[in-house]
Design a protein around this nucleic acid. Structure first.
Length: 717
DNA sequence: GAGTTTGAAACT
DNA sequence: CAGTTTCAAACTC
């Protein structure tokens, strides 16, 4: 079920690679060349990854991590097409684990490796230390390939002990044998690195088939690491990284069948575990991988659950969210899991859509977001609770992107204000959500032209919207500080509050929680709720149905338009950005001035896509500047209530003021302003670092956060 | 807190 | 696709 995509992607690339003149040329070259070519390939494959020189090491690395997962998904490392195929990987394990475990095994492996991936992060330090890693890792990796090959073909004996059936296995291995390019690389590298890799070899032999299976992932991982190192390295920590990687991998290998144990053990590995957050990121990355690989959602979910829970528990104390109750973090994790699981399915569908067109932007964004979201096992500061209903978790995920984590931290450091705005700054551990994530973000930025950038924009939009709401909120409050803090408190206390469904059983889009891909939790006052882990199957099934009906049902409702809305004048930019509601509103009586209006609720202007009547959306009237202005005048002379048109004038202005206030950094300041004033300009063109580094706040991006901020003010309006 | 309004979601 | 119904959030009192 999962292989098709991979196969499709991997095979073509592989053949391409082999057929290309470059390939033959490489073959004729010295052993070292191939390595470089591989690197080049990776680099080439990861145009998205091409992260701009980052000022901070950690973000940089993070981006790579994310990149890696992405690479797997979209680009499929040409160097490992054979490996990419789960079937092939699993085959070797069949004898040991059984067919039913195959998918599980893949998943596990990915997961296991994820901790190892954390080692990548460790390498941050290591990276700095060693410049050779880039080479060493790939080599070791290659070596692995070679090994597997060797083991499979000539040296079955060694494995036979542990894995008698292995000998027959390896269609994948056979592939290796036949695949000259790969094999050659592997063998060559093996020869070169043989001395250094003795350790690995030993492990390999011990591990047997498992090793082979892991190799693919490990290879990817290692290569990735090397890649990272290559960029950042200048030292000689090659061994360190190898050892780390090895240890991680070995750990993984040793505990392939026991998810829980393996996970824990993996974390136990010092090198792998250095940072919980890091681990989370890795985990998320792996999760994304799994999704991409179409691994069984259940497996993933369960695994993730197991894996995440412990950490979540650890984070219990960290849950500073006022609304959070003891144990709530767990719930949140569960909720998130739901989303993740569903996200898997979603992603599949979405992924297909990505290839499409109209929805590609959104889809990809969602995709990325989903990944991020998935990864967010560590709801550090009540992020999940900050989701904005209707806007979609995707954004949330995006906000909480693992990549963001790093950046967010940096941001926090840069300006304390961020803390207030983004209490979840640390939450960053969350995914892609971050929205799919720091690294991802980097990727996004790098591929500025890509849809991902749009995703970023989306996030930004949400941020702006949130800010705008905050502005409105402040604007409407007589004693800003006091009331505001009050409202914020209320909002935060409400952050964990979710739905209030009575008849829908929380299995329809009416339900905020369900729509957001979350399980209902304690704060919900729903009745007869089925949106609980207990009814996981039902939830997933329902989601499926809804998605089958409308693939974008769970997609973000507010999307960033890469192109400004021509129909709008410059003033249309009253919207923080060129974001628009994906489907448009249909307001008739609210004049798009109340939260009944999804556009208004999302902090975006109405577009021609809206069927609203008498639109007065302060964020941008669908009729355009002229009409908006006209209406403003009319309202001015007539009955502009506090919430009405007056807001239109004030929203942008206040937003800017607030932004000024909020963003102490001149740089961010300028960006913010430009975002507000020049959506078209900003869309996809702002420097990544600017957008995400300064302004990307998971908190803001979360639908809940937005909601939270907004929740108090409409009434006041 | 109860009741009303509103528009999205769901249904036909 | 349009019309109607259902639903829950937003809003008012």
């Amino acid at each position: 079920m999962d292989t098709p995509e991979k196969a499709q992607i991997a095979t073509p690339i592989s053949s391409k690679f082999e057929d290309s003149p470059v390939f033959s040329y490489i073959n004729s070259l010295s052993p070292i060349k191939p390595v470089k070519s591989i690197h080049a390939t990776q680099t080439f494959n990861s145009p998205i990854f091409a992260s701009p020189p980052s000022m901070f090491a950690s973000p940089h690395i993070s981006s790579h991590k994310e990149t890696r997962s992405f690479k797997r998904n979209c680009l499929t490392d040409p160097s490992r097409p054979e490996f990419s195929n789960c079937e092939n990987e699993d085959n070797p394990s069949e004898g040991i684990l059984g067919a039913d475990k195959q998918s599980d095994l893949c998943t596990k492996q990915l997961r296991y490796l994820s901790p190892g991936s954390s080692s990548r992060e460790i390498p941050i330090g290591a990276c700095n230390e060693s410049s050779k890693l880039a080479i060493a890792l790939p080599k070791s990796l290659k070596y692995v390939c070679g090994t597997s090959d060797v083991n499979t073909l000539p040296d079955n004996n060694s494995k036979a002990e542990n894995v008698p059936e292995m000998a027959s296995t390896p269609s994948s291995l056979n592939k290796f044998a036949t695949d000259g390019s790969k094999e050659r690389f592997c063998s060559i590298e093996s020869e070169i690195k043989l001395g250094k890799i003795g350790q690995i070899e030993q492990n390999k032999e011990k591990l047997g088939c498992d090793w082979e299976k892991l190799v693919s992932d490990a290879a990817d991982l290692l290569i990735f690491d090397s890649f990272i190192i290559e960029e950042t390295s200048d030292g000689q920590v090659v061994k360190t990284l190898n050892s780390e990687t090895t240890s991680c991998a070995s750990t993984v290998l040793k505990l392939p069948q026991d998810n829980n144990d393996s996970l824990q053990k993996t974390h136990a590995v010092g090198s792998c575990k250095e940072h919980d957050m890091e681990s989370h990121v890795s985990l998320s990355g792996e999760a994304a991988k799994l999704k991409e690989t179409n691994q069984a959602p259940e497996i993933f979910s369960s695994t993730l659950l197991n894996a995440s829970n412990p950490e979540v528990n650890d984070d219990k104390d960290k849950c500073i969210h006022s609304g959070c109750k003891p144990g709530f973090p767990q719930q949140r994790s569960i909720r998130r899991l739901v989303f993740e699981m569903s996200g898997v399915n979603k992603r599949r569908s979405m992924y297909n859509y990505n290839c499409g067109s109209s929805t590609s932007l959104q889809t990809e964004c969602n995709f990325a977001l989903n990944e991020m979201q998935v990864v967010s096992p560590k709801p550090e500061k009540g992020y999940s609770s900050h989701m904005i209903p209707g806007i979609g978790l995707h954004l949330n995920a995006f906000a909480s992107t693992s990549s963001n984590i790093n950046r967010v931290k940096l941001e926090t450091l840069a300006s304390g204000r961020q803390l207030r705005r983004m209490p979840s700054s640390s939450y960053s551990s969350d995914p892609l959500i971050s929205g799919q994530e720091g690294p991802n973000i980097s990727l996004n930025h790098n591929s500025a032209e890509g849809n991902l950038s749009s995703c970023v924009n989306e996030v930004q939009v949400m941020e702006d919207a949130a800010s705008a709401f905050g502005v409105i909120e402040e604007f409407n409050q007589s004693s800003p500080k006091k009331k505001r803090s009050k409202s914020e408190q209320a909002a935060e206390s409400d952050a964990c509050k979710r739905c209030n469904c009575k008849k829908s059983k929380c299995l329809k889009l009416y339900c905020e929680c369900f729509a957001a891909g979350l399980y209902c939790v304690e704060p919900c006052s729903c009745q007869d709720c089925f949106n609980k882990p207990t009814y996981e199957d039902t939830v997933l099934e329902t989601r499926k149905q809804i998605e089958s009906r409308n693939p974008l049902a769970f997609a973000p409702k507010v999307i960033m338009s890469s192109e400004p809305f021509p129909e709008f004048g410059d003033e249309s930019n009253k919207t923080p950005s060129s974001a628009r509601h994906k489907r448009g509103c249909n307001c008739k009586k609210s004049s798009c001035l109340k939260k009944y209006c999804e556009c208004f609720q999302g902090g975006v202007g109405c577009s021609i896509g809206c069927r609203c009547e008498g639109c007065k959306n302060p964020f941008g009237c669908k009729y355009g500047t002229e009409e908006t202005e006209l209406e403003m005048e009319e309202t001015d002379t007539s009955e502009v209530n506090a919430s009405g048109i007056s807001l239109q004038n004030n929203v942008v202005q206040k937003a800017e003021e607030k932004l000024d206030h909020v963003l102490p950094l001149p740089h961010s300041y300028e960006i913010s302003r430009s975002l507000v004033r020049l959506p078209s300009f900003f869309s996809g063109k702002l420097p990544q670092s600017s957008l995400f580094g300064v302004r990307s706040s998971p908190h803001i991006c979360t639908s809940k956060s937005l909601k939270t901020r907004v929740s108090t003010w409409p009434a006041q309006v």
